[in-house]
């Protein structure tokens, strides 16, 4: 696998490689899963376009930072990290708006339809976003032009990979923010109410359209964040390419493992899948009869195993119904 090769070149020990693989994969899956969960938790929609939105977010960063050079031409003297951060913020803002626009024109008209039908629509959306994004990306990977590249930090004899550390911080912040949103804030309560019973939520004066719009905005934003980490060292230092959307799609086992509607579950599921895949990459890659891409199958195997024991996932809520 590409990831394994990258590490061999980085020259870390097997244990270090394993740890980095686990943390970097785990946090990306966790971020992807959380973005998915917020849309599901607020709207009951299974968003199959989430992987495509992740690739789109990464592509936007690549375009803003290296092609359009936002805001380089207006701030020529600014240091690279500042210019890059501004590019990322601009790209994520655009990703958020795209998420909200897609919701408005594609999902909103389906309000009140069968959830199954809406999920199929998101599958179509996935194909459209992926095709268009890949068209723009072309055959070559597009580097994101970040200030760290493949550099590492050497501190007290430890080798730290900047993006892996930053991804852990980002995952933690998003986790805390989403838990606070859902369980403390007025908007989060409205989101959960909307997901449970749209009509009853509207009867309370909750603006269901606004809830849909905001949750798709946040979902697309988080997909973009995950897409960025996915396209940086130590994942794919070369940048975003046509397989990024496909790789992001592999977050589904993590989502289902954690239970579709749990933020904490999304994180646990994300890191569990990250660990399984890291272990498989480390120990199973050389075993020829398993084939080359076997590590990529491991998340799905883990998902099946968990679902056999707990059909609602690790943290998913059973439906509460009472007469």
């Amino acid at each position: 696998m590409i990831e394994a090769v990258v590490f061999a070149q980085a020259g870390t020990s097997p244990a270090g490689r394993l740890l980095v693989d686990f943390l970097s994969l785990g946090s990306i899956y966790a971020l992807l899963a959380m973005g998915f969960v917020i849309i599901f938790k607020a709207t009951q929609v299974l968003n199959f376009a989430h992987g495509a939105l992740a690739a789109l977010g990464a592509f936007l960063v690549a375009s803003f930072a290296t092609v359009l050079q936002v805001p380089g031409r207006w701030m020529p003297g600014a240091p690279l990290w500042l210019r890059w951060t501004l590019s990322v913020l601009a790209a994520l803002a655009l990703a958020t708006i795209i998420g909200m626009v897609l919701e408005r024109i594609v999902i909103r008209p389906m309000l009140g339809e069968e959830l199954f039908a809406v999920a199929i629509v998101t599958l179509g959306l996935d194909i459209i976003i992926r095709t268009i994004t890949n068209d723009f990306i072309g055959t070559q990977a597009r580097p994101l032009g970040d200030p760290f590249g493949t550099n590492v930090w050497a501190i007290e004899g430890f080798t730290l990979i900047p993006w892996t550390i930053i991804a852990q911080v980002a995952t933690t912040i998003v986790l805390v923010a989403l838990v606070a949103l859902f369980f403390r804030s007025r908007l989060g309560i409205a989101m959960r109410a909307t997901a449970f019973d749209q009509e009853a939520a509207r009867a309370q004066g909750i603006d269901v359209g606004r809830v849909f719009s905001i949750s798709w905005g946040i979902g697309a934003f988080l997909a973009g964040v995950a897409g960025i980490f996915l396209s940086l060292f130590p994942r794919r230092a070369a940048g975003v390419d046509q397989s990024t959307a496909f790789f992001a799609f592999a977050a589904f086992p993590a989502i289902i493992l954690g239970g579709l509607d749990s933020v904490v579950g999304a994180v646990v599921g994300g890191f569990a899948v990250g660990l399984a895949q890291a272990l498989a990459t480390e120990f199973l890659t050389g075993i020829s009869f398993l084939g080359v891409g076997f590590a990529g199958v491991v998340p799905y195997l883990l998902m099946l195993a968990v679902l056999l024991i707990r059909p609602y996932g690790l943290f998913g809520s059973e439906e509460i119904r009472r007469v």
Partner: peptide, 16 residues
């Protein structure tokens, strides 16, 4: 809202 607590139901009611 069966999956939410009594307090959360009341909070949802107070949205406006």
């Amino acid at each position: 809202f069966a999956e939410m607590t009594v307090d959360e139901n009341l909070k949802a009611g107070a949205y406006v």
